[in-house]
């Protein structure tokens, strides 16, 4: 059933990583991404790996969950890997056959890129595993709120994200129901040519859109009835507060970035 798809992969827990201020976690994730992109050598990536492993071990997320997050991007890794392998020609030639030429430069780039992509995904997954979607949007709102002076609608965007996240499971359930109802009327969703199958989606998509719009309208009305008028003057139930551990975490992140910069300068590989 469609319902089995997991979205919003929050994995509740009480680890130190879970308890970090979400704004700090976002900042650390950005620092980590910077780390990965400025690293020019394997030793630089190694620093990223160490940073990632420490956070991972502290978070108490099962290794199985981590592997699950990598699975969907395996095709991308393979695809970029093949491109790098065949189209980069630097270093020694390792293998040559007709127009195919594989060089040591190609192999190194392939491995380097693959490791980098995997690290990127692991890091960002760790963020979403340890931070609930609602907290995350809260943090994004707070980070973007200085932009309000230039009329950037930070609160509205965060509210839209929150609502979207809230309604994903509802819409999935609804899709399931409509699919069953149309199947009961003999709709065939599984067989036939591509065009036929695309056409078979119409009886599902139209009711889904209709009900999504209806829901949106009802929600808007309900919010207005409760005097919702945007972010101005709104206080919040959960205040975000930074603790000493947050500053320690940022300091550690900065040290790791410094390490990568130093390695770029002085390490040959």
């Amino acid at each position: 059933m469609i319902k089995d798809i997991t979205i919003g992969q929050f994995f509740p827990g009480k680890s130190v990583i879970h308890r970090l201020d979400p704004r700090i976690k976002l900042l650390l994730t950005v620092m980590y991404i910077v780390m990965l992109f400025i690293a020019k050598s394997f030793s630089g990536l190694g620093v990223g790996i160490v940073f990632m492993l420490i956070s991972f071990l502290l978070s108490g997320i099962p290794i199985k969950m981590m592997l699950k997050s990598i699975k969907p991007i395996v095709p991308i890794i393979i695809f970029t890997g093949i491109l790098n392998l065949f189209f980069i020609s630097s270093g020694d030639v390792l293998f040559e056959w007709k127009f195919i030429k594989i060089t040591s430069g190609g192999v190194t780039t392939m491995v380097f890129m693959a490791v980098r992509i995997i690290l990127l995904i692991c890091g960002t997954s760790l963020l979403t595993y340890t931070t609930s979607p609602i907290t995350l949007t809260d943090a994004i709102e707070r980070i973007l709120s200085p932009l309000k002076v230039i009329k950037f609608p930070a609160h509205e965007i965060a509210m839209m994200m929150t609502i979207a996240l809230r309604f994903i499971p509802t819409l999935i359930e609804e899709t399931d129901k409509i699919m069953s109802a149309q199947k009961a009327r003999g709709a065939d969703l599984e067989t036939g040519s591509l065009i036929k199958r695309a056409k078979a989606l119409i009886p599902i998509l139209i009711p889904l859109f209709v009900s999504a719009f209806r829901r949106a309208e009802e929600l808007a009305l309900a919010m207005e009835c409760r005097c919702y008028h945007g972010g101005e003057g709104r206080t919040r139930l959960k205040q975000l507060k930074t603790a000493p551990r947050d500053y320690v975490a940022v300091a550690i992140g900065a040290l790791f970035i410094a390490a990568v910069i130093l390695l770029n300068r002085f390490s040959p590989i």
């Binding site: 109802a181 009327r185 009711p207």
Partner: peptide, 23 residues
Amino acid sequence: FQYPEYQLFEETVYKDIAFGPKN
């Protein structure tokens, strides 16, 4: 189904009733 009106999708009532028989 429960609340079956949410599965209507055709342009006209006629076509919607005809969906099952057509299938």
